[in-house]
Simulated assay, not measured.
Amino acid sequence: MTRTQWASVTAVVLALLFAGAATVASAGPEPGQVAPVADSADAGFARDMSVHHQQAVEMSFIVRDRTKDEEVRRLAYDIANTQANQRGMMLGWLDMWGLPKVAPGVEPMAWMGMPSHGAMPGMASPEDLDRLRAASGRQAEVLYLRLMTEHHKGGVHMAQGCVDRCRPGVERDLAQGMVDAQESEIRLMADLLKARGAKP
């Protein structure tokens, strides 16, 4: 098995392992522990990462239709499938905690104690998405890999924030799984870009 194939398998296995654990376990409060409040790290992470994941799913569906390359299409499918499942879990936790999925007046990333100025790290711009929709073949592959690399770097930053700030439990475990899986996928995408003669 090549390094690229191994990185891909590792990323998927890690993501599914933590997603499976989070599905089986309850993210409800431990006995004697109250549910997270709206401005907690737990709630902020669930809200912000759900939005972040949604864009990754969108970009992955776009590139799937813009290239016939099986390696990139397989990666896009894995990212879309994993992140859609994780997003569903996080939105489900917010429902279980009785908290809103959108917090009007609350800046993204406020739970990390950092100003976001309305934007989360790694998010592609509307112009970036338009360029991806207009591209095809190798051009679409390279643009997707570059955008998703930056997206994953932002996702790792956010997930590490939950690892450091969220209470112990399945949400923090899922965040650690995101860190591990997305760092592995970043290395895989660097290999895919190199194979296409492009820089990250």
Rank of each mutant, 00 (worst) to 15 (best):
A103L: 12
Q83I: 04
V106G: 08
A119L: 09
L94K: 04
P100I: 04
S116H: 00
N85P: 03
P108E: 06
L99C: 13
G122D: 11
A119D: 04
M123S: 07
G122E: 07
M96T: 14
M114N: 10
G122T: 05
V102N: 13
T82A: 15
P108A: 02
T82P: 07
A119T: 11
E107I: 00
W111D: 01
M96S: 15
A119S: 13
M114T: 15
A110L: 14
M123V: 14
L94E: 07
L94N: 03
A119P: 01
L94Q: 03
A103S: 13
G113K: 05
V102R: 10
N85A: 14
A119R: 10
A103K: 11
E107H: 00
P100H: 08
W97M: 05
M123P: 13
M123L: 15
N85W: 12
M112D: 07
R87D: 02
P121C: 10
Q86D: 15
W111T: 00
W93S: 08
G105W: 06
P100W: 09
A110P: 05
E107R: 00
Q86Y: 07
H117A: 08
L94V: 12
M120P: 03
P104S: 08
G105D: 06
A110N: 04
L94R: 05
A119F: 09
R87T: 13
P108S: 04
M114S: 12
M90E: 02
L94F: 10
M109H: 00
M114Q: 15
Q83A: 03
V102W: 13
K101G: 10
M89N: 12
G118Y: 00
L99Q: 12
L91V: 15
M120F: 01
M109L: 12
L91D: 08
M114L: 15
V106L: 13
P115R: 06
G105V: 11
P115C: 10
A84F: 09
P121W: 03
S116C: 01
M89Q: 15
R87Q: 13
E107Y: 01
M96L: 15
E107P: 05
S116I: 00
G98E: 12
P121K: 08
S116Y: 00
G98F: 09
A84H: 09
G113Y: 07
P108W: 01
P108H: 05
M123I: 06
P100M: 10
V106H: 08
M90N: 04
V102F: 11
R87M: 14
N85V: 15
P115T: 04
G122V: 04
E107A: 04
Q86R: 09
V102G: 07
A110W: 02
G88Y: 09
V106K: 12
M112W: 01
G118W: 00
G113S: 12
A110K: 02
G98D: 11
M96A: 15
T82D: 13
H117Q: 11
G88H: 07
A103M: 14
T82Y: 02
A103Y: 14
W93H: 11
G88T: 09
Q83E: 09
V102D: 08
K101T: 12
T82M: 13
W97Q: 03
G118V: 00
G118K: 00
W93R: 05
